[in-house]
Amino acid sequence: MPALFSMIKGDSKANRIAKWLVSGPPLLFLLVFFVAPSLIMLFTSLRFPGEFGGLAPIAAPAGAVHGEYGLTLETYQFFFSDILYAEIFLKSFAVAAASTLICLIMAYPLALLIARSEKRFRNLMVLLVVLPFASNFLIRIYAWMIILGPESVFSHFINTVLGAFGIAPVTLLFSSFAVLVGMVYVHLPFMVLPLYTNLEKHDPALLDAAQDLGANAWQRFWRVTWPLSLPGVFSGSALVFIPVLGMFAVPDILGGTGDILIGNLIKDQFLGTRDWPFGSTLSIMLTLAVLAITALAAWLARPAAIPEK
């Protein structure tokens, strides 16, 4: 880095131009298509819905006797007026947490195995984790519709086993279970990759040293590998938790009568109820939640905790 800066310092005017040439276009693009839309969303949350959908005008039209124009905090009042919306956030958090935990349990051994494999196999093994991403997102969900469907081999098997224990048959599709399976399936690679990049960096000498000091396999894992892998665990968890929090497609396709998450509610405000302001308010709330979680994950995974080899 210092070398770069010394190189740049020489010609400060040309350099300033170069700096703007390089950073200007992406900056401009994102200001227009990311920052402005986010502000519009915030602004929309402060308005009244239009009679037919859309938004009510800000200025009252001439001759309007009464009506709702201008800016308001009513959507926020509405949000806080009923514990219902807190409940749906809580439920989304619970589903996200459960998905994250299951992903972690499934991904950890896999990542560990890849990291401990011979170097020449690692790329292939990682590729095999990423490859399912080559299929379409919806298709990955759809696959579970087939597997969990009432007439599927899997359903028959499960119900035969349950029947043997005298338990009434269950329907797997259109249930919270199906939603959880779908969430885990769609997001699993997001957990494997950061874990692997972290585990790969571990110095095997540490484990050898632990062994020499008499630590058994479990102790070596729990006292050495696991603490060192925490940054990977946290960044992987954030990569799973946050998308699950806003997901509406999985509950939409695999969920049953009770599977509504915050994402479904937001979608419904725009594509069902025609209530843009409230939909925006819900989006703002979700943004706040995500920011809080990101901050937490960043703090937990702060680089100081990684002893580089």
């Binding site: 900056l27 994102l30 990311f34 519009i40 969303m41 937001i266 989006s283 995500v290």
Partner: peptide, 26 residues
């Protein structure tokens, strides 16, 4: 710039979808 570049990656997609929808229309 880093904040602008990396935030859309870290957000649930639905938020960007909603924001852009409102922006394009309004």
């Amino acid at each position: 710039l880093p904040v602008l570049v990396f935030t859309p990656v870290a957000m649930p997609e639905i938020l960007l979808g909603v924001a852009l929808l409102l922006f394009f229309l309004q």
